[in-house]
């Protein structure tokens, strides 16, 4: 049998592709070791159709009220404490009314109101732009409304940061570990090059615990099922005048703010 160079290359090329294809096919078909019947949700998990927060700003009076909540969240989630606002990482933090609700401030508003601090975090939007743009489904919306991050899958393209109109997302511009003073051994850290944000304490809900910020807020932050008319959050929303951030964009934030009024029955 004789063949010229061109034929030889063709045959080797095709057989290589077939070989690789066959191996890939067999690997793809191989069953995963964990069967669907082998996994189940934890029995103690708190469940909802759509989780949401109501933040009563009248309960946040002192600096300590803010730092306590922030510390509770950041310490259990191993959020690094980076002292550079350009590359810092934050899951929950405070900002003034003027900057939290841009366009809602008015010229003659009292300075105290403009500068009044608000607790800011991921809004867990019902219609999240970050989820829409993510090219790998690394950020996705769970059936209970939580906008989750799968840090294993994130490729660090930062499309979600451009898409989020709330500045809720932080990127690990370097290894976060040197900036975590006392790591919580029960929770992972993140690695360089991934985006992170508040995850509504999904790991605590699974154990039947409240989100950490709720517990630390001493009643300032209430969480519950927005789709359950009898829930505490719904009761608060129907009883008080509440505002949400940038409603005009249609993302439907799940975080409601009660601004003033000292009564919170």
């Amino acid at each position: 049998m004789s063949m010229d160079r061109r034929q030889f290359l063709k045959i080797t090329g095709v057989s290589t592709i077939l070989g690789i294809g066959a191996v890939a096919g067999v690997n793809g078909l191989s069953r995963s070791p964990v069967e669907a019947s082998q996994v189940e949700p934890s029995p103690d998990a708190l469940k909802a159709k759509r989780w949401g927060f109501v933040i009563d700003m009248s309960k946040f009076r002192t600096d300590d009220d803010f730092t306590r909540v922030r510390h509770a969240c950041h310490s259990i989630h191993n959020v690094p404490d980076i002292d550079n606002p350009k590359v810092e990482i934050k899951w929950i933090w405070k900002d003034t009314y003027e900057h939290t609700f841009p366009g809602q401030e008015s010229k003659y508003m009292a300075e105290e109101m403009k500068d009044k601090p608000f607790m800011v975090l991921c809004n867990h939007c019902d219609n999240p732009p970050c989820v829409r743009v993510c090219p790998t489904k690394a950020t996705f919306k769970r059936s209970d409304g939580i906008v989750m991050m799968d840090m294993h899958r994130c490729i660090g393209c930062r499309f979600c940061m451009a898409a989020c109109p709330f500045g809720a997302r932080s990127f690990n511009f370097g290894d976060p570990r040197p900036f975590i003073k006392e790591p919580n051994p029960e929770f992972p850290t993140r690695t360089k090059g991934v985006v992170e944000k508040c995850t509504f304490c999904y790991e605590r809900l699974a154990k039947g615990l409240n989100p950490a910020c709720v517990d630390a807020s001493q009643g300032g932050i209430v969480f519950g099922d927005l789709e359950d008319p009898k829930s505490e959050v719904r009761r608060l929303i129907s009883k008080h005048y509440t505002i949400r951030r940038k409603l005009e964009l249609g993302t439907e934030p799940s975080v409601y703010y009660i601004i003033g009024g000292n009564e919170n029955a």
């Binding site: 829409r132 743009v133 993510c134 090219p135 790998t136 489904k137 690394a138 899958r153 994130c154 490729i155 660090g156 393209c157 930062r158 499309f159 990127f171 690990n172 690695t191 360089k192 090059g193 991934v194 985006v195």
Partner: peptide, 26 residues
């Protein structure tokens, strides 16, 4: 340039492994 801009360049194949038609980047 896209590759240089990625935070986790070693995971670039995730875009193909988890195709996401609702993402313009896909």
């Amino acid at each position: 340039f896209i590759f240089c801009d990625m935070g986790q360049p070693t995971r670039v194949m995730n875009v193909i492994l988890h195709p996401t038609p609702n993402s313009v980047m896909f």
